[in-house]
Simulated assay, not measured.
Amino acid sequence: MGGQDKLLQGRWALVTGATGGIGRAISLAFAEHGANLWISGRNEEKLKDTAEDAKALGAAEVIILKVDLAASKAVDELAAKVTDKIDILVNNAGLAVEAAAMKGDPDQWEEKMMQLDLLVPMRLTRRIAPAISKRQAGGHIINISSVAGIEALPGIGGYNAAKFGLTGWSKSIQQELKEHNVRVITIYPGYVASEMTADAPVSQDKMIRPEDIAQAALLPFRMSPYACPTDIVVRPAQKLSRGA
């Protein structure tokens, strides 16, 4: 890919949950377009794999940050490490656990799912947005949500709650931060073939690929400074089949 075609040359991006799936795919797509990367996750070996592949694709610098975002202190420490050079924040790390009205563990909803899917993006944004706003060319915050953030479905009420919360947060900060030259984009994928959907009630053969979401994450950088795709919904092209 020629230098003139690189959309993110020299910019710094933090991608959370970069060990696999959507986070890894976004990291690699950004690397191919010349971005430098901070990548975070809990599995250091998988982060190293992502880093090696990102460098092979063209990232000049890739910094691994092994972190468990379940603790607020860890979120603050992560933010402190990146604020000196950050242009793009990708809030991707997330979790889905059983969370229906008649099933599931409310302690898990609070301690894990609500923390990772909602409170971590909120806290990271609060810590990092001021630094992004000071960048000469402004910056971007990309929140990876889910169609569960715009459509309520039975059996996943807790996940719906977390993702609907992220939708509300995203829409609010989009209004606030545009005055500071920071664009906020929320991506709402349907079922994506990854470890997270391995136990889903539908097979993965026709699911969206993580690379498709990575292309959606590149869309804001293909547009002029006068436009921002604030909400990007990506659905499977075909009806998903049940079972293996």
Results as ranks from 00 to 15, higher is better:
residue 70 A to I: 10
residue 79 A to Y: 08
residue 133 S to I: 09
residue 126 R to V: 09
residue 52 E to A: 12
residue 115 Q to M: 15
residue 107 D to A: 15
residue 89 L to D: 04
residue 89 L to K: 07
residue 59 A to R: 10
residue 77 E to L: 10
residue 59 A to D: 02
residue 91 N to H: 02
residue 67 V to W: 00
residue 39 I to L: 06
residue 134 K to W: 12
residue 64 I to N: 05
residue 13 A to P: 11
residue 72 S to C: 03
residue 27 S to W: 03
residue 115 Q to L: 02
residue 103 K to A: 13
residue 37 L to T: 13
residue 11 R to H: 14
residue 10 G to I: 07
residue 5 D to L: 15
residue 130 P to E: 14
residue 24 R to N: 06
residue 98 E to G: 01
residue 37 L to R: 10
residue 68 D to R: 08
residue 29 A to P: 02
residue 83 T to Q: 15
residue 10 G to D: 14
residue 82 V to I: 10
residue 61 E to Y: 13
residue 24 R to P: 00
residue 131 A to L: 02
residue 101 A to L: 15
residue 60 A to H: 09
residue 36 N to T: 10
residue 86 I to H: 00
residue 55 K to Y: 00
residue 27 S to K: 04
residue 84 D to H: 14
residue 74 A to R: 07
residue 48 K to L: 14
residue 68 D to P: 04
residue 120 V to Y: 09
residue 90 V to Y: 03
residue 19 T to A: 03
residue 114 M to R: 04
residue 80 A to M: 02
residue 23 G to H: 04
residue 96 A to M: 08
residue 119 L to P: 01
residue 13 A to G: 15
residue 132 I to Y: 05
residue 66 K to W: 02
residue 46 K to M: 07
residue 77 E to W: 10
residue 46 K to C: 06
residue 9 Q to I: 06
residue 53 D to K: 15
residue 122 M to R: 07
residue 118 L to E: 12
residue 45 E to D: 11
residue 59 A to I: 12
residue 41 G to P: 01
residue 97 V to Y: 02
residue 48 K to M: 12
residue 96 A to H: 08
residue 35 A to Y: 05
residue 88 I to N: 05
residue 97 V to D: 06
residue 117 D to I: 00
residue 83 T to V: 13
residue 14 L to Y: 06
residue 135 R to Y: 09
residue 116 L to Q: 06
residue 58 G to N: 07
residue 74 A to V: 01
residue 5 D to R: 15
residue 126 R to T: 07
